[in-house]
Amino acid sequence: MAHDTTQHQDHGSATKRIWTVFAILSVVTIVEVALGIIKPAFLTDTYLLAMKLLNWIFIILTIYKAYYIAWAFMHLEHETKGLRRAVVWTGVFLVSYLIFILLTEGNYIYEVYRNGHVAWDF
């Protein structure tokens, strides 16, 4: 078991890959924080699918970072297709379903609070 698949790379390229990924993650985080502090008006005023464009950018950048952490740092790119899919597809499917169902329900309750005969701010 000592020789797993990452062994086949030579040492230099593996560490180079690590530092490249670190640079990507750092730059993305800096961009996120900068956008979070500046909050450009054209991004907060534009809505896409009922959510601010800025929030979409944050979420996409987060998934981008998660991809690099999982693929490069956790070596998913060197695992077999079977293991990778068993982990990633299961997670992605269940999490998307859960988020869809809970956010829809949360939005429904918000509508009830606002339009229904329910007083929560008395």
């Binding site: 269940l94 999490v95 988020i99 956010l103 949360g106 309750i109 918000y110």
Partner: peptide, 20 residues
């Protein structure tokens, strides 16, 4: 990861409830 997603999705649920 599914446990954490459960928590974060619950956070999203509550936030959508009081989105304004």
């Amino acid at each position: 990861a599914l446990t954490f997603s459960g928590f974060l999705a619950a956070y999203g649920f509550s936030r959508f409830k009081f989105i304004d």
